[in-house]
C-alpha cells in the first residue's frame, strides 16, 4: 500500500473524508507552487492533486485554463514539475497525485515518466483525457512502479464503464459530479449521493467527488457520503486573485483549513 492507500485507511478509521485540493504546478511560478503546497498541507489537506499544465486543457473550465496559460508562459516542462515534487517530498509525506493530459506524458515516454514520477515521490497519476479502454500501456508502467492510476467516472458512465474503472482503477475513483468541465458550480446535483452509492456497489476503492465543489458547505455535504472531496477551481481562483507569493500561499492554506473544518464537523456528527 502506498501513501494514498494508507491515508484513506487512516481516515476511514476516524470516520473522516479526505480533502484533496488541486493546484496547477508553476502558476505563476514553481517557487510559489512550493510555498502553496506547504500551506495546503499545513491547512489540513489529506492528499494533493498537482496539475501538470497543458496547452490545450479540454477538460478544464476558464479558471484552470487561465492558470495553465500562466504556468506555461515561461516554458514550464514536465521535468521541472517533477523536480518540484522531489523538493516538496523532502519535507512532506502527504500523498501526491499528478493530474495531467496524455500528450506531455506520452512525449516524455510513458515508462520513463512513471519511473521518474515514482522516483521523485509521487503516488498516483490521473490522466484526464485517457479513457480506461486505452490505458493498458500507461497502466503497465504505473503498476510496475507502484503508482496508483486513478480513473474518472461521471453521471453518464454506464454500468460497464463503472465495472471497468472499478477493475482497473487504483488508489481511489474520481467521481465527476456533473457532466462538463472543471469549475465552480452554484449547485451540485441533488442525486449525487445516490450516484455515489451506485458506484460504491461496484467497488471497494474509496470514492472521491470533484468538479464544481467550491464552498465549505458543499465539501461538508460531499464528506457525508463520499470518501474524498476534490476542490480545484475555487482554490485556483483564490490563488489567482491574491497578490504575491506569500499572500497566495496564505490564502490557499486558509481556504483549505476552512474546507477541512467543515468536513471534520460532519465526521464528528457521524460519530455521535
Amino acid at each position: 500500500m502506498n501513501r494514498i492507500g494508507i491515508k484513506f485507511a487512516e481516515l476511514k478509521k476516524r470516520g473522516e473524508a479526505a480533502l484533496i485540493p488541486f493546484v496547477t504546478a508553476g502558476d505563476p511560478d514553481l517557487a510559489t507552487t512550493l510555498k502553496i503546497l506547504q500551506a495546503l498541507e499545513a491547512g489540513g489537506a489529506d492528499c494533493i492533486e498537482l496539475g501538470i499544465p497543458f496547452s490545450d486543457p479540454t477538460a478544464d473550465g476558464p479558471v484552470i485554463q487561465r492558470s495553465s496559460e500562466r504556468a506555461l508562459k515561461d516554458g514550464l516542462s514536465l521535468p521541472r514539475v517533477l523536480r518540484l515534487v522531489r523538493k516538496f517530498r523532502q519535507t512532506s509525506q502527504i500523498p501526491i497525485v499528478l493530474f495531467g493530459y496524455f500528450n506531455p506524458f506520452f512525449r516524455y515516454g510513458l515508462r520513463e515518466f512513471c519511473r521518474a514520477a515514482a522516483r521523485v515521490g509521487a503516488d498516483g497519476i490521473l490522466c484526464v483525457d485517457l479513457p480506461p479502454e486505452e490505458s493498458a500501456e500507461l497502466k503497465r508502467w504505473t503498476d510496475a512502479e507502484g503508482l496508483d492510476l486513478v480513473f474518472l467516472l461521471s453521471p453518464t458512465s454506464g454500468p460497464n464503464r463503472v465495472r471497468l474503472v472499478a477493475k482497473k482503477g487504483r488508489g481511489f475513483i474520481y467521481y465527476v459530479s456533473v457532466t462538463g468541465v472543471t469549475g465552480a458550480r452554484r449547485a451540485l446535483a441533488d442525486d449525487l449521493r445516490a450516484q455515489v452509492a451506485r458506484v460504491r456497489q461496484a467497488t471497494s476503492l474509496p470514492i472521491g467527488v470533484g468538479f464544481g465543489i467550491s464552498t465549505p458547505k458543499q465539501a461538508a455535504w460531499i464528506a457525508s457520503f463520499a470518501d474524498a472531496a476534490v476542490v480545484g477551481s475555487a482554490l485556483v481562483e483564490r490563488i489567482e486573485k491574491a497578490k504575491g507569493s506569500a499572500e497566495k500561499a496564505r490564502r490557499a492554506g486558509a481556504f483549505v483549513s476552512e474546507l477541512k473544518r467543515a468536513m471534520e464537523q460532519v465526521a464528528r456528527k457521524k460519530k455521535s
Binding site: 496547452s55 506531455p104 516524455y108
Partner: peptide, 10 residues
Amino acid sequence: YVLQDRSGQI
C-alpha cells in the same frame, strides 16, 4: 503527427 514542442505542448 502533431506540431508540438519538446515537452509535448501543442
